[in-house]
């Protein structure tokens, strides 16, 4: 167990190193000059050169990257070029709102996805099944920006059920989380549906029914726990996809999270913030997958991580 975790953490660190290298390299190659951005349009070339030297931007790539990594190890992600404050401070202030939205969003995804998947599998081929398949298709392929705007308009402006964006309590959280949940639930409902259908055809289900267990008991006690296994690693992968959704949904709903920060930083080519957000996202994805791998044996005792 410990060696497994140790090895996985080792791999994870390598992945993170790779991610930071690629991001840093891509942004290094970008034809935008942060020193000029900082210096403004009234600056003389000497002033620009001075700023470049202060930020160490005149050094070769490997030195800049090594410098960045050295600081990173001490928990220093640098200073934003635009906001002129510590990237860690900017990220820190936005981490909690993002985590809240993420937990609620993934919660809704699972709740909606699994329930719809179960219903579709049980009513396989029926109208409900076809309707749900179509719905999940729409959900997965709907542009998040449009969907978020529509939801906002319909539920907040017309029906006035929810406040129009902003950060606050549960009331503010519900609408963006529901948007993310509904849009992302399609993946889960389809996965649950196919995995349920597969399990439903297995011999032990027929045996359970034959020995006189009620339908509900069979589904909840025997089918679902077996069908749910592939969902767990999916959540790990989903965190990455989810981050993409966060960028859009947070911007529309004015949710002060990491996604909004990323969106602004990308538009302004604020390199330290972009690298910082990417690093945080990579950590979240790697961590999510690690946790998913560790949780699976608890759900399905047949999977033994010692063998991996």
């Amino acid at each position: 167990m410990l060696t497994f975790i140790g090895r996985r953490i080792g791999y994870s660190l390598l992945i993170l190193l790779g991610v930071s290298l690629i991001t840093y390299l891509l942004l290094f190659m970008l034809p935008a000059d942060p020193a000029r951005q900082i210096a403004g349009r009234s600056a003389t070339p000497e002033v620009v050169a001075g700023i470049r030297a202060q930020l160490g931007l005149d050094l070769p790539f490997y030195q800049q990257y090594a410098h960045y990594l050295g600081n990173l190890l001490q928990g220093d992600l640098g200073r934003s070029y635009i906001q002129r404050s510590e990237v860690t401070e900017l990220l820190g202030s936005r981490l909690q709102p993002s985590l809240e939205l993420m937990a609620a969003g993934i919660g809704f995804e699972l709740l909606i996805g699994i329930s719809l998947g179960v219903i579709a599998a049980l009513r396989r081929g029926g109208i409900a099944d076809r309707l749900l398949t179509a719905l999940s298709f729409i959900g997965v392929s709907a542009p998040q920006f449009i969907a978020a705007m529509l939801f906002l308009y319909f539920f907040a402006v017309q029906l006035e059920w929810f406040p129009m964006g902003g950060y606050g309590g549960l009331k503010h959280l519900m609408l963006p989380a529901l948007t993310l949940g509904l849009l992302g639930s399609g993946w889960y409902s389809r996965m649950v549906r196919s995995s349920m259908i597969e399990v439903l055809h297995q011999d032990f289900i027929r045996t359970a029914r034959a020995k006189g267990l009620s339908r509900a008991r069979v589904v909840l006690r025997h089918v679902l726990p077996n069908a749910i296994v592939p969902i767990i690693p999916m959540i790990g992968i989903d965190i990455g996809v989810f981050m993409g959704g966060l960028v859009v949904v947070e911007s529309v709903f004015g949710w002060p999270g990491i996604g909004q920060l990323a969106w602004q930083a990308i538009q302004q080519v604020d390199i330290p913030v972009i690298v910082g957000v990417t690093t945080i996202c990579a950590v979240a994805i790697v961590l999510g997958n690690l946790i998913a791998d560790l949780v699976i044996p608890l759900i399905d005792p047949r999977i033994d991580i010692k063998k991996h």
Binding site: S42, A43, T44, I51, Q54
Partner: peptide
């Protein structure tokens, strides 16, 4: 002062002694 990294430093170039400050 170049250490401030002000985008507006250039506006003050007509003040005597400006170059000495920007030149460090």
């Amino acid at each position: 002062n170049p250490k401030t990294q002000s985008p507006g430093s250039g506006f003050f170039s007509s003040i005597a002694g400006y170059e000495d400050v920007t030149g460090g």
